[in-house]
Simulated scan of single mutants.
Amino acid sequence: MLDDTLDGRAARLNQRYRHHAATEVLRRAVNDPDLGRVALVSSFGAESVVLLHMVSVAAPGLPVLFIDTQMLFPETLEYQREVSARLGLTNVQVIRASDEQVALHDPHGTLHKTDADACCNFRKTLPLEQALSGYDAWITGRKRFQNGERAALEFFEPEPPLRLRVNPLAHWRPEDVQEYMIENNLPRHPLVAKGYPSIGCAPCTSPVKPGEDPRAGRWRGSEKSECGIHFIGGRMVRGKVPA
């Protein structure tokens, strides 16, 4: 009997695509009935342009969900507009917390200083969860070389209770990312040249020194390493929004 649980579907998809390259995983997966309705979630960060380019070639009308936390670098917002236009992406959807939510939970814009998890939760995790409610799967740019919880990443993974996650670049090396950008003449995020290999919100992202982990500039000085939209130990991390 066909195992139609999330774990079963993920295992079946990983078996089906185990010998495929990233571009083929993406191209075929967006039409695979085992995935259903699919969207790409993109931060338009340092390496995002790789997947965005792949989508522009394979399925330019695929929904691209861009979370504007309203605390992003101005350079990221401009880069999002530039890349979307250049690649001809026709279905970019900007996702953000409502003005009412901001007024309720962070009226002074200082929550990130006292509870970064709660800030990420209401500005990023909850708006994305609402946006993804109409989809069966979403595509991420996570890769094994990013270490930590990502070291054993597969192409497909379950996200209980309802969705699957697709990681076409899971097996890529850092040099693969750079080579793809060069070969396809893709525009770089302007902050990369200023020492930001991993780019999040402006207050919580700092430049990285030579020899440091690429994500060392995210929430520097704290134990926090993920914003909450990705698994930690197999579970979604959700900070508590203050009442």
Score class of each variant (00 low, 15 high):
residue 1 M to A: 08
residue 1 M to D: 08
residue 8 G to D: 01
residue 26 L to N: 08
residue 29 A to V: 06
residue 30 V to F: 00
residue 31 N to F: 02
residue 36 G to D: 04
residue 41 V to M: 10
residue 48 S to H: 12
residue 52 L to K: 04
residue 58 A to M: 10
residue 60 P to F: 08
residue 61 G to D: 14
residue 63 P to R: 01
residue 76 T to A: 02
residue 80 Q to V: 07
residue 83 V to C: 03
residue 86 R to S: 02
residue 86 R to L: 03
residue 87 L to F: 05
residue 90 T to F: 14
residue 90 T to V: 15
residue 91 N to A: 02
residue 93 Q to T: 05
residue 96 R to Q: 12
residue 102 V to R: 09
residue 105 H to Y: 13
residue 106 D to N: 04
residue 114 T to E: 06
residue 116 A to E: 13
residue 119 C to F: 06
residue 120 C to P: 15
residue 122 F to R: 06
residue 125 T to N: 05
residue 131 A to H: 06
residue 135 Y to Q: 00
residue 138 W to I: 00
residue 146 Q to E: 09
residue 146 Q to G: 11
residue 146 Q to P: 03
residue 148 G to Y: 12
residue 152 A to P: 02
residue 154 E to A: 05
residue 156 F to R: 12
residue 162 L to C: 06
residue 166 V to K: 04
residue 173 R to M: 14
residue 174 P to S: 12
residue 177 V to P: 13
residue 185 N to L: 01
residue 192 V to C: 03
residue 193 A to F: 08
residue 196 Y to H: 07
residue 205 T to W: 03
residue 214 P to V: 07
residue 214 P to Q: 12
residue 215 R to D: 13
residue 221 G to R: 15
residue 223 E to S: 14
residue 225 S to V: 14
residue 226 E to L: 06
residue 228 G to K: 03
residue 231 F to Q: 05
residue 236 M to C: 01
residue 239 G to W: 15
